[in-house]
């Protein structure tokens, strides 16, 4: 049973960066903007997050540095795609290329350093309950934060007027504009929320998952987060299921390597990526009747005056 508990704890930790990044991207895409730069914002968030925590000695400062870095990068993306009406796919790729370079540059001096990882919750009595205690009451703060964020995003999208407007902008920017809503401004906030979440997701890796920074440590998680948004049909609730499924695949392949299953380790490492391809195909096939994507996703909007 110890092992089951350990596996569940590991799955939750592995899923959290995916969930954080995907939640941010979900809001961005619900506003009609496709930001493919998640991987770039995450990796810069990881470098800045670790740098901030290492220099200040505080995990919270580190997390804030990651958030700010991600938001700033997404602001460049917003200025390009919203201000200058540049193609969103190409700009997102540029953001990823730039982010990988920047993170190497920023993170170079932190490689080889270590920090104390984010502390885990401990409530005497509750955390000590066998089996479920540590899973429910003994996680690090980011895990609770990511779940709270999903609930907040769900509430915002479906229960508030602002959320309704955001969805309207993402489904039909011409009508939203005609009704007098500032389409570009709303989209800019949505993009920056996505960037902040991606930065936090990146920062989670060196602050809680592994207590050090290595270049390229996001290893495609940003892209998997993008796939998760599609998997979730742009709905926050399904995002949680998707993220935990992917976290489970990641952890199970690690354990399988440990148990010495007679399969090359590289094949096991490739599993999360192969799973992403297969899931995308299955989801897209199941949906061949009609798409659930925001109708204006990825299209350029230039308001006429």
């Amino acid at each position: 049973m110890e092992l089951v508990e350990a596996i569940i704890l590991a799955v939750l930790a592995a899923s959290t960066p995916l969930l954080l990044a995907a939640t941010g991207e979900l809001i961005t895409e619900r506003a009609g903007v496709l930001n493919l730069g998640v991987e770039g914002m995450m990796i810069v968030g990881a470098a800045c997050g670790f740098g901030g925590a290492w220099l200040s000695g505080s995990i919270i400062v580190g997390a804030l540095c990651g958030i700010v870095a991600g938001a700033l990068l997404s602001l460049i993306f917003a200025l390009m795609t919203l201000g200058l009406a540049v193609n969103q796919v190409a700009t997102g790729l540029a953001l990823t290329i730039l982010g990988i370079g920047l993170s190497g540059l920023i993170g170079a001096r932190f490689v080889g350093e270590k920090i104390t990882p984010a502390p885990h919750l401990h409530i005497p009595g509750l955390t000590d309950i066998p089996l479920v205690g540590r899973i429910l009451f003994g996680e690090d703060g980011f895990i609770y934060l990511s779940l709270a964020l999903v609930v907040a995003v769900w509430w915002f999208l479906y229960k508030t007027r602002a959320g309704l407007i955001l969805r309207a902008v993402g489904d039909n920017h011409v009508s939203a504009h005609a009704l007098g809503y500032p389409v570009l401004q709303i989209r800019m906030y949505a993009v920056m929320f996505g960037g902040a979440c991606a930065g936090l997701a990146g920062a989670y890796l060196p602050l809680a998952y592994t207590p050090f920074f290595i270049p390229g440590m996001t290893a495609g998680r940003g892209w998997i987060a993008l796939a998760l948004v599609v998997f979730a049909s742009w709905r926050p609730g399904r995002l949680v299921i998707g993220a935990y499924l992917f976290g489970a695949v990641t952890i199970l392949q690690l354990h399988a390597q440990g148990w010495g299953v007679g399969v090359p380790s590289q094949l096991m490492s490739a599993l999360p990526y192969l799973a992403t391809v297969i899931v995308l195909v299955l989801i897209s096939r199941a949906r061949s009747g009609g798409s659930t994507a925001p109708a204006a996703l990825g299209t350029v909007f230039v308001p006429d005056r």
Partner: peptide, 19 residues
């Protein structure tokens, strides 16, 4: 199937690298 070619083609980079 209508699966996003952006994401699938990118995922296959990691697979090729590991192979």
């Amino acid at each position: 199937f209508g699966a996003s070619e952006i994401l699938t083609s990118l995922m296959l980079v990691y697979v090729a690298d590991l192979f």
